[in-house]
Design a binder for these strands. Sequence first.
DNA 1: ACTACATATCGAGATATCTAGATATATAGT
DNA 2: ACTATATATCTAGATATCTCGATATGTAGT
Lengths: 125, 125
Amino acid sequence: MESPVLMFKALGDPTRARIFEFLCSNCCPVALDDLGDVRPVQGVTVGAVCCHVTGSEQFSSTVSFHLKELRLAGLINAEKNGKFMVCSVRREAIQVMRDYLQAQSDAVLGTCVEAQSLDPIGGKK
Amino acid sequence: MESPVLMFKALGDPTRARIFEFLCSNCCPVALDDLGDVRPVQGVTVGAVCCHVTGSEQFSSTVSFHLKELRLAGLINAEKNGKFMVCSVRREAIQVMRDYLQAQSDAVLGTCVEAQSLDPIGGKK
DNA sequence: ACTACATATCGAGATATCTAGATATATAGT
DNA sequence: ACTATATATCTAGATATCTCGATATGTAGT
């Protein structure tokens, strides 16, 4: 579990990547309640995801399928809130992937005689 | 091109991930030449990858297929060196993926009212 | 030119994935 | 209880992916 490779596989589908990016940008939006007060919202409903992905107000079983894949890969959380299912990004998952890539990057530098004398790409200069 | 999502897709296959990790750890190994001198090697031959993945000395068309996928995704380089094809990791690709994840991570923190008060996971404390 | 070797490409079967419609479940409001 | 709404699951067809054996290409050595 918590396998970065499975996470990459899940993120490797364009539809799922769109969903993931949408959740990253909207997982904890604020909304106005009926009193007009600003209230934090815990995540995004499946309906909102469907709307964003398909452009229609209709529920999409395809989106539901992809949300499940993202959940099984550990990339997102989904918990029921009354009638709604609310999705949010698992920040730990992002970190797992970043750690993996960091480790691979370090491995390259560690074994590359030549690379060690190169600038670390994107690193502080 | 240089799409992190395509890179994730390529890395999302366990066989390819193994190959990629192997290349990260061995893309610029040193070797002894016939005079016994230490010489840097530019990368890893396809044969060496096959050997690592399948455990046999035989060439594997499956490995060849996966190497092509990794190349098409931009994750590795492959150039001919005489009779051999020599593979190496594209460090820029690792950076593209890391940047993408960084951006998503930042997006989460940016929109999450709650998350902003949380410790950054894995960040400096 | 011939041979051995390293690798690529092709072709086909097995399996997995994606999509979308149909049906099922669960919850809130009446 | 009934109804509408939100979402999940099932099913099946279309497509993509993975694997592996067979064949092809290109290079080095004789």
